[in-house]
Design a protein around this nucleic acid. Structure first.
Lengths: 203, 203
DNA sequence: GTCTATACGTCGATAGAC
DNA sequence: GTCTATCGACGTATAGAC
């Protein structure tokens, strides 16, 4: 009988792939992309190193996928923070923007190694490409909030796209230093500084 | 007779090295780092491809050096813009900051390909490392101006280091989009938006 | 899946500086 | 005579085309 892929084999394959991604993300959380060598990922996920290449064409693609897998979580958290304020129905755009900034910064500061890896660690160009993509994803979130703020008269008239991109860069770059060497006691000050800075910028 | 390096041979060697750097920068100006292949650099500088590796241990180091060579010019231009206002002696910190922002943005928009390459093009991790270094160099320039502004009472009290890093990220990220696809007629608007945004952020 | 193009880096030979 | 700089073809790896 000829070999056919069945639901079962496909599910198993997808499962292994997910195991690899999760294992890789764990490694990145602990030691950045530098720690996510192919052999380390294999070891961490309990498969043979050769198995990796039955799920990913090469290491760049594996890492790029890990990057997406990890970043999508962050983007979602920020998006939710800027939206859920809708439930109360009476929240201002400034509140939403503040929530988004706080979420981004606090999550980064709580998972510094991962955040540094996603934001600034020098990585393969293929992965850097994903970074550019996701910066745009963040910008789209901010753009909506800024547009709302202008419409409500909270923020000054401005080009939302420019400001949105600017805020993404502002947040990312201002966290690079603190993520490298932590001064935990200054986290709150930092987050406060950033929210204040962002609000001044748009207001 | 034993062989010794002389001034003459050393100068000649340095000269060839500089030829390689200039040729490479020219290529980057025209087509980004993607266009600066080893063979292209060799051709452009009129040497054989093997010669490159007598001046640089590998391609990453060559490109990293080209990055520094090109970026130092930009940093110097921004530093000068933020300082030369001193001559008039009556310039405000806001003027200096505006000059720095305008210089950065205008130079980028006038040499888009090079600017994109230096700011955002996905590159070898070794080169990305240099990018991080030079972002800090820009931040140091801004930090001085911000400190001055606070001292003069022009800007609100704030953590200069945080704001400085933030402004670097703000500028870089907000230019990425425009540098990719040019709308030349909107250059002035963009520069205006950025100066206004930056001034609001610090004031 | 094969074939082509192009990339990086090496090597032995040659020319020239000391 | 001794050492170095240069050349450019070559080995090997990789990406894209078909």
């Amino acid at each position: 009988m000829a070999y056919r892929e069945t639901e079962h084999t496909l599910a198993k394959k997808a499962d292994t792939r997910l195991r690899l991604l999760k294992a890789a993300r764990r490694l990145v959380q602990q030691g950045g992309f530098a720690a996510a060598s192919a052999s380390a990922v294999a070891k961490e996920s309990g498969v043979a190193s050769g198995t990796i290449y039955r799920h990913f064409p090469n290491k760049s693609e594996l890492v790029a996928e890990v990057f997406r897998y990890a970043t999508e979580r962050e983007v979602a958290a920020v998006a939710q923070a800027s939206n859920k304020q809708d439930l109360g129905c009476g929240k201002t755009a400034a509140d939403k923007l503040t929530a988004a900034v706080e979420t981004f910064a606090q999550r980064a500061l709580l998972g510094r190694t991962l955040a540094y890896a996603l934001i600034a660690e020098p990585v393969d160009p293929r992965v850097e490409q994903e970074r550019l993509r996701y910066r745009f994803a963040y910008a789209e979130i901010f753009e909506d909030v800024i547009a709302l703020g202008i419409q409500r008269g909270e923020f000054v008239a401005q080009n939302c796209q420019i400001t949105a991109a600017a805020l993404v860069g502002l947040l990312a770059e201002s966290l690079v230093g603190p993520l490298k060497k932590d001064h935990e006691h200054e986290h709150d000050d930092l987050v406060q500084s950033l929210t204040a800075l962002v609000l001044r910028a748009v207001t």
